[in-house]
Each structure stands twice: as C-alpha cells, then as structure tokens.
Write a protein that binds this DNA or RNA. Structure first.
Length: 474
DNA sequence: TCCAAGTCAATATG
DNA sequence: CATATTGACTTGGA
C-alpha cells in the first residue's frame, strides 16, 4: 500500500539537493519501500523490472552521499539478528544474486567511487533500512518461499527431476536425461594455486601485460588467453576494492574509542614517515599523488619495461618450450622465497620458510604440466619437468600458501580527502585520511598495496603520455 | 580495441 | 544449509 510515498521522498530529495548533514541518524533519507505499487509478490522473483527501476535510478541520481560502509554494516546486523539470509535479501530487495550480495556487504566501495549503477544497491539498502516493515516483509517472503518449496517436493513424489526445467531445453535438446549433459556444458575453469601464484607474480611485474605477454603467460600456464585476460581484469579490480575497504575501515575505526592515535592529521599534513600508508587509489591520477617509499626492494615494478620485450617467464620452470627464445636472463625478479607451507590457517605467519629453497634460485612451484595440446581432459600427468628444480618438491600441499612476497613499504600518500571535492563530503565514514595501517602482519595487504601501486604507476605513465617511464621520484 | 565496474553463477568453505 | 570466492560475461567510456 502506500504507493505514493516513494514519489514523495523522491520529490523531497529533488527539492533539496543538498541535504547532507545529518548527524547521527539519517533520518530523512528516502523512505518508503521500493517499488511504487505493483510489487507482484506472487511468483515473480525479481522485483526489478521496469517500474521500480526507474524510480531507483532517479533516486540514485539525486541521492546524497551515503555511507556505504555504515549501510552494509546495518544491513548485516539486521539480517543476522532476524535470521534472514542474504540470498533472500539480495533477490528480494536488491535484485542481485547471493554471491553479489555477499561481496557487496563484505566489501562495499565508498560512495564516491561508485558509478551510478553501483550506487543502486546501496540506495535500495538504505530504502530498506528506513522501511519500518522491512524485516517483516522479508520474513513473509521467507515463509512463502518455504511453503512453496514444501509444496513442491511434497507433490512431486516420484519425480526424479523436480520441475525446474526452466533452463533446459533449448540447445542441446535431446532430451531428456539431464544426466549426460555436463562436460559439454562448460567446465568452469579453476586455476590451480600454482597458477594463481604465477599470475600474481606476473602481475607484480606488469599489472597491464601486453597482449604478447598475455599470450606467453597463457602458453606457459597452459591456459586460455581469455582466461589470463580475465584474470588480470578481475585481479586488478579486486585489489582495488581491497584497498577501498581498507581505507574505509581505517578511517572509521580511528575514533572508535580505544585508539587514541596521537597522530592528528591536520589538514593535509605530509606524513613524511615512510612507514605507513594508505592512500587511496584514486583512479584519477593526474593530480599529484605522492607516493613515497616504495623501494624496489623486491620487485621492481613494472615501469621498467625495458624496451625489449623480454619475456619473463613467470615461474622458473622453464619448461616449456614455449617458443620463446629470448633469453630471459634475469628476468625473474626477486626472490620471494615463499613456498607453500602448510596451511593451517595461521595468520601470523612467521617468515621463515623452512623449506629449502636455495637462496639463489627462487624455486617456486611449477606448474603442472603442459600437455602438448591434446585437449583431452586435464589430468596431471606429472612429470617430466625436465629441468625442474630439484628442490622443487613437486607435489605441493594444498592450499596456497600464503602469499607473501614483496614487502613494499607502502605507498603512503595521504591523498587528503580534502582536495578531492572539497565540497560535500560529509564524511560519514571516515575521511579518506591516511590513517595508519600499522599491522605489519598482513603480508597480503602489503602485497595488495604494492600491486596497486604498480597499477597507479601504470596509469600515471599512461597519462603522462608516452615518455619513457621516467623515474618518478617517490 | 582496451579497460573498469557490476554482476552472475559455479564452487568453495563454514 | 548459508556465506565467501572467483572466472567469465555484460555494459559503458574513451
């Protein structure tokens, strides 16, 4: 009921474009439930379809800056408190699948980094949070779903394949037997830990590999080119996100209470210390971005592409044959000696890989095998490995070891939130300040940061137009 | 064309 | 069962 509410809120927002400033609770943001009427609750799973979408988009357009982190936090609380799953919430309220919701709730990007489209779910969440009956509605949905489910399996007594032929048919037809249809479907590539390692290593050196490099990687790892491309795209964007959340969390917890943090940042202070960092990723780039530190330490970054095009074999296992002939000489960048150490989930990993790994060579696992190319299923056949390193311990354990590698000092750069837009920023959540990420323990984080740095560098370079990779002074 | 941002959907994990 | 991860696809911009 209440069909006009959304309109009302919308109008309100429109009328006063600059709301902002809400202190503790955001009271007036939007209210009302999403779809203006119609709400077919019966069988249509996806609520979004035409009608509501429009309103939402308009709302997004006029929506004030929202605290995405705060919103997701509250949503998670409400959901868990009431035993509501994110699947139901996602499909019913956001029109997204479970996986997407999980991701969104766990790693919300800051509002200003979101595209119009990306803001939609957050506006919906805010709307939902403001809806007094939000929980109740979801509970109802849950009940209905369950009922339907029960009914279905109840009535379908002997059906071997419960209904749900929705996807069926079409192509392969033939009927029937859903049994023999797999394999041809599409296997869903799963990269082995070693492969991921190799890709990550390659990423450190070149976040934006050239087509040629990609080809080589694909060949060496025995993966499809598209897989390698996709991997890089995904990795880059995911790394970026990690940084966002880090930024947000750092900011929000700063004044949580216990932490005193002497560091008072006065507007744009330049932290000279090289220690921490944080920094934002900022896609813009052009402006200044001071990154300090970054000693090459271990991986020198990408910019040094040297004009030749050398092929870097990511893993030492040379193997292969791949036709590369160029001597890769040192190529391998640093040593990173990690290797797999058991897993046991420890987070505090002490460094000190017990395993041998001769200091000079970075042994790292090598890939599984490169079959000629017959295409049959992939089974690891082992072996061979001609030059394989002896130390190589071929069978790796299982999980991927932690990834630790490079220990970049950090990018630092205070970026100063102020410079950004300097206007609205109500900063509900943190400022994008440079806080301090002191935990040294997280290698992963560091790695991500480092990776990100490379990313930034790459972009700057690009932006700066040709010009060789000048040496940016960090 | 490449890239980034959003998602989906299959798998992994818990 | 629910949630988390992740390769691939889609969309939209230069």
């Amino acid at each position: 009921m209440s069909s006009s509410e959304s309109v009302k809120s919308l109008t309100e927002l429109v009328q006063q474009p600059c709301p902002a400033i809400e202190t503790s609770k955001d009271g007036k943001q939007h209210e009302s439930s999403e779809p203006p009427a119609s709400e077919s609750q019966s069988t249509t799973p996806l609520p979004l379809s035409g009608h509501s979408a429009l309103s939402i988009q308009e709302l997004v357009a006029v929506s004030p800056e929202l605290d995405t982190y705060g919103i997701t936090k509250r949503v998670k609380e409400v959901l868990t408190d009431n035993n509501l799953g994110q699947r139901l919430f996602g499909e019913t309220i956001l029109g997204l699948t479970q996986g997407s919701v999980s991701d969104l709730l766990a790693r919300p990007k800051p509002w200003h980094k979101l595209s119009l489209k990306g803001r939609e779910p957050f506006v919906r969440m805010q709307l939902w949070l403001n809806d007094p009956n939000n929980v109740e509605k979801l509970m109802d949905m849950k009940r209905m779903e369950k009922k339907a489910y029960m009914k279905r399996r109840h009535s379908s007594v002997s059906d071997s394949q419960p209904c749900e032929p929705s996807s069926a048919g079409i192509d392969y037809s033939q009927g029937a037997s859903p049994q023999p249809q797999h394999q041809l479907k599409k296997p869903r590539v799963v990269l082995a830990p070693e492969e991921k390692e190799a890709l990550k290593r390659a990423y450190q050196q070149k976040p934006y590999p050239s087509p040629k490099t990609i080809e080589e990687l694909a060949t060496q790892l025995n993966l499809k080119t598209s897989t390698v491309i996709n991997w890089f795209h995904n990795y880059r964007s995911r790394i970026r996100r990690e940084l966002f959340i880090e930024e947000i969390q750092a900011g929000s917890q700063s004044q949580a209470g216990s932490s005193d943090s002497p560091s008072a940042r006065s507007s744009r202070a330049v932290h000279s210390s090289e220690g921490d960092s944080c920094d934002g990723v900022d896609t813009e780039g052009p402006p200044e971005e001071k990154q300090s530190g970054l000693e090459a330490d271990e991986y020198s970054n990408a910019t040094t592409k040297s004009q030749g095009g050398q092929a870097e074999s990511v893993f030492e296992a040379g193997e292969a044959a791949s036709q590369d002939a160029r001597s890769s000489e040192k190529t391998e960048s640093f040593h990173l000696g990690m290797e797999n150490l058991e897993d046991t989930d420890d987070e505090g990993r002490l460094k000190a890989p017990r395993q041998s790994s001769p200091p000079g060579s970075q042994s790292s696992g090598e890939i599984l095998e490169t079959m000629p190319n017959s295409a049959t299923k992939e089974d690891a056949s082992t072996s061979a490995a001609s030059t394989s390193v002896l130390t190589g311990e071929s069978s790796f354990k299982s999980k991927e070891s932690s990834e630790k590698m490079l220990s970049v000092p950090s990018t630092s750069s205070t970026l100063a939130g102020g410079s950004q837009k300097a206007n609205s920023i109500q900063s509900l959540f943190s400022f994008s300040e440079a806080a301090s990420s002191k935990n040294t323990r997280d290698n992963t984080l560091r790695k991500k940061k480092a990776a990100n740095l490379n990313n930034i560098i790459h972009r700057l370079e690009k932006a700066a137009s040709r010009e060789e990779p000048v040496e940016w002074e960090f």
